[in-house]
Structures are given as C-alpha cells and as structure tokens.
C-alpha cells in the first residue's frame, strides 16, 4: 500500500522541477504533506496514540495547513505569482531531475547492505537532490524556500526508512520542521516582502 504513495511523492518532485507558478508549488507541498502523513501512519508498526498525534500534527496540521497558509500569504503580499527567471529552462531542469532520480536509484542499490526500506531510501535521496536543485537553479527567494521545504520532507521520509524501529528519531526530525519553518516563514512573511526577488546587498566588492 505504501509503495504507490512513495511513487506519487516522487512524481510530485518531478513536477516541482518544471512548474513555474508559485501556487502550484504550494499545492505540491500540500500533497506531499498528505502523502507523508499516510506513509507515517502505514509504516509505524508499533504506533502509540501520542506518536500518532505527533505525526498527525506535524504532517496534517503543519505541512498541509499552516505552511501553505503562510506561503499563500507571502504570494499575496509580494504579488509575485510565478518564476520569471530561472538559471535553467524547464526542459533542462527536467533532464537534471530525471538524472537525479537515476542517480538516487544507483546509489541506493549500491548501498543495499542493511535492512533499509529501499523505496523510501531512493525517494528520500531524490527529494534531497531535488530540493538542492531547486535552490541552485532558481533565483527567487520564494523558490529557495520551496527547496528547503522539499529537503525537510526528504528528511522526514528518510526518518521513515528506519523510523518503524526508531520512532523517536521521527520526533526529533519533526522538531526541526516546527522550529525552523515557523521562524523562516515568520521572517519571510513579516519582513522580507520587499526583497522577494533577489537578495544581493551583501557581497564582496
């Protein structure tokens, strides 16, 4: 049951690389949040009520409601609806991301020496690659934020690869999300709106 969900997660990552509208970015983050909750629910073998509540609040409340709400506020405040400028055209982005998927598969299979859930491992590595790629290939701060959120999701997915045996690690990963995302989004929403395009004041002359 979990394999189709993980594959859907991978598909959202490919979509991330080619989309140019910020609202679609937000929708993809929502979809990833829902998928992560479903995966966490299915994978946690010895789930307790407290763990379930923790995971549900992290994925459903936080990733599906709070973060998208803040992101949409940013879009409204800045008035920037789409990516006008990328370092790479969408076609090449797609090629790079597809290469990343193949690389993740090769790396994962070459490391197949411990009992780690392979499909989770592949997709989480792919998500890490995609997140970093989004940050590097886009010029706008909003896109960088998307890259960071994708990296966060990759961390959560990687936690799940071993999470059924060390659930506490998932909780620690969740702390990362809550602390940092709220702070980053908070700063962004409150203060950064006038610099939504590029941040280039600090540099070596």
């Amino acid at each position: 049951m979990s394999i189709p969900l993980v594959i859907m997660f991978a598909v959202t990552l490919i979509y991330f690389s080619i989309t140019e509208r910020f609202r679609i970015f937000v929708n993809l983050i929502i979809i990833q949040g829902v998928l992560l909750f479903a995966l966490a629910f299915l994978e946690l073998k010895t789930i307790t009520l407290s763990t379930l509540l923790f995971v549900a609040s992290e994925t459903l409340v936080f990733k599906v409601i709070v973060v998208p709400y803040l992101l949409l506020r940013i879009i409204r405040k800045t008035g920037v609806e789409r990516v006008f400028e990328k370092a790479l055209p969408s076609f090449y982005s797609l090629l790079f991301v597809t290469f990343g998927l193949l690389l993740s598969i090769v790396v994962s299979f070459s490391m197949n020496t411990t009992p780690v859930n392979m499909i989770y491992f592949i997709v989480s590595l792919f998500a890490l690659y995609t997140g970093l790629f989004l940050i590097i290939s886009h010029k706008k701060v909003f896109s960088h934020l998307m890259g960071f959120l994708v990296i966060e999701n990759s961390v959560l997915l990687l936690s799940m690869a071993i999470g059924s045996q060390i659930p506490m690690l998932i909780n620690i990963g969740i702390l990362l999300d809550i602390f940092v995302s709220v702070l980053i989004l908070g700063i962004f929403v409150m203060r950064l709106k006038q610099y939504a395009h590029e941040l280039t004041m600090l540099k070596d002359d």
Binding site: L145, F148, V155, I162, L176, I184, F188
Partner: peptide, 22 residues
C-alpha cells in the same frame, strides 16, 4: 538579508547534519 541567509543556510546545514545522524 544577513539574518535570512544565515537562518536559511544554517537550517539546510542542520537538515544535512540530521541526515548524517540518520
């Protein structure tokens, strides 16, 4: 700008360190 960059890159760094721990 410096704060944003610091928090953003440190957060990515901390996420990477967490992957190392995983």
């Amino acid at each position: 700008e410096a704060t944003w960059k610091y928090v953003f890159v440190c957060s990515i760094g901390i996420a990477l360190a967490y992957i190392g721990i995983l």
